[in-house]
């Protein structure tokens, strides 16, 4: 499997400005579903608005978007439906927001997941990123707030980050519309299969847990051979997640 890493400058040449049309809330007849995930306070909704041309209100608050917002855009004749998920720190707990985000990425099976992170607080944001990469392998990291990062003298090696995470990384300042064209281009390439990701999987797991997860993963794969995220399902089963059990029973995954 080859991972094609696209940095910002590579993609902007490809970007076809005429091909972009913001669709606002018209989201019927779409070709691809794109999920938008991220921590609170990362400017996730600004990215959403920049992509769709909508003006969704966002406060400087965690937990602002409880209701799922949807919007759309058209790029190179393909229509994309964008779903804004609640901003959360994690996907492992039982709060309403987290369950909503978790279930959408897992059961909604988006064609691409955009993960918005604050470039100034990458380490904290990676907690959520690494969890999402256990669920889906079609994701792009939007390294937002690059303008602030520059002001704060935070330097990020985008290439290495992309290699480490195994997904494309697009630096952006959504407030000023910087990086949004590159993001759209990357999303379209992932959706069409031009970019194949090989996402990072969580490594630092204690050996007894790793062993249990392996045993369980093997059992799950025996029953569902084509499941891409058996490891995540094993994690969730070990947590006793009832939704997962229900979905496994009904075969909602495959």
């Amino acid at each position: 499997m080859e991972t094609k890493v696209n940095s910002a400058c590579e993609t902007c040449e490809h970007f076809n400005k005429e091909g972009l049309k913001k669709l606002g809330i018209q989201t019927d007849n779409f070709d691809f579903v794109v999920a938008l995930a991220g921590n609170p306070n990362t400017g996730k909704s600004t990215v959403f608005n920049a992509l769709t041309g909508l003006r969704q209100h966002t406060g400087n608050w965690p937990g602002k978007t409880v209701m799922r917002a949807e919007g759309g855009f058209e790029y190179n004749t393909n229509k994309y439906k964008l779903v804004d998920l609640p901003g959360t720190y994690s996907l492992l707990s039982t709060s309403e927001d987290e369950a909503a985000a978790r279930d959408f990425i897992l059961f909604g099976k988006p064609d691409v997941t955009i993960i918005v992170v604050d470039a100034n607080r990458l380490e904290r944001n990676l907690n959520l990123v690494l969890q999402i990469l256990e669920i889906t392998d079609k994701a792009v990291l939007c390294l937002n707030l690059m303008d602030e990062a520059k002001r704060n003298k935070v330097e990020i090696d985008v290439r290495t980050l992309s290699k480490d995470l195994g997904i494309p990384v697009v630096p952006a300042s959504a407030r000023f519309n910087k990086g949004i064209p590159e993001l759209i281009q990357t999303v379209s390439e992932i959706a069409s299969g031009q970019i194949v990701c090989k996402p990072h999987r969580i490594k630092n797991v204690p050996s007894n847990i790793e062993k249990a997860v392996r045993t369980l993963t093997a059992e799950i794969e025996k029953e569902f051979p084509n499941i891409p995220n058996s490891r995540w399902i094993a994690f969730r089963l070990l947590e006793g997640d009832k939704e997962i059990i229900k979905a496994l029973k009904s075969g909602e995954f495959v």
Binding site: S90, L92, L122, E123, R124, L126, N127, V129, L130, Q131, N152, K153, V154, E155, I156, D157, V158, T160, L161, D164, L165, H200, I202, K203, N204, V205, P206, I209, F235
Partner: peptide
């Protein structure tokens, strides 16, 4: 699990971020 994820995150950040 949470500690493991944060440890991974710290490893990645060590590689890629300079402040």
């Amino acid at each position: 699990l949470t500690e493991g994820i944060y440890a991974d995150a710290a490893d990645i950040v060590k590689d890629t971020v300079k402040t």
